[in-house]
Amino acid sequence: MAKITMRQAISQALWEEMERDENVFILGEEVGIWGGTYAVTKGFYDHFGEKRVRDTPIAEAVIVGAAIGAAMTGLRPIAEIMTINFAFSAMDHIVNEAAKMRAMFGGQMRVPMVIRTVSGGGRQLGATHSQTPDAVFAHFPGLKVVAPGTPYDAKGLLKAAIRSDDPVLFIEHATMYQVRGEVPEEEYLVPIGQSKIQRPGRDVTLAAYSKGLDLALKAAAQLAQEGIEAEVIDLRTLRPLDMQPIYQSLEKTNRLVVVEEGWKSYGVGAEIAARTQEEAFDLLDAPILRVAQKEVPLPYNSTLEQAALPQVVDVIAAVQEVLR
């Protein structure tokens, strides 16, 4: 199998789906002539033309809003929101329109739309441009939220998202475009809403996603040298959230640490911990710990920024704590 980057995997998924279905089109800021701020759609404008690769004004509300409307007519728009921080400018359309459209009218309408966006800190972009507010978006029923951690999953999940008849927020991580992984030549889809074991183990369960997965896998590799075998579970989808692999893992390990890049309060870890104690309390031999971002707006200074972001050492410390 070929090893490709996350960027290539996402780009391939878009390309293949656009070749496959002419109702699929891209709209967003700098997706065309520029080739995408993160170079994901490089070459698309020349190949597919301006009808299907549409540069928009800087106007997130109408990017998402128009995508919703177009989707309601049966097109399959992929709205690119340059970074998730700008999705707040489109929040009303994401929350009050996309997520509600079907339920509110008794199932008459469908919104087969993908919003692709980029989350994450660590690039010294300061408080407004470095957020990882993924959990916020996972709060709303009616929206699906996908956040892959490997090129394989990114490609398969994005293709599934584009073919999904429901609105999907597809979250990429700003520092993971160069991450490499094996991706098969032949076509495949990864179903939305399934967590997966990324590394088997028996001593402790690490539940993570996106950048958190990267941290968890690195921590697991280091822990293995000390004889601690962590089982790493990649959530891959935040809504709908698949808890079964976590519970199955807890049957063996009885200990759980959740790793996410976003803020701890009201976050993904909070949700997983709450569900676990509601649904699988008896499997736990220790309190569930969360590794997450410090509760501060991210500063520009790199040392401070890294101090605020969760690190591999924090994951290792949490594992040691739950194993005590």
């Binding site: 010294q124 972009l125 300061g126 408080a127 441009h129 500063p299 520009y300 200074n301 040392t303 401070l304």
Partner: peptide, 16 residues
């Protein structure tokens, strides 16, 4: 340069 002596104490950077 993100230094403590910056106008935003190194927390804002170029944009802030």
């Amino acid at each position: 340069l993100g230094k403590a002596t910056g106008i935003s104490k190194g927390k804002g950077g170029s944009m802030h």
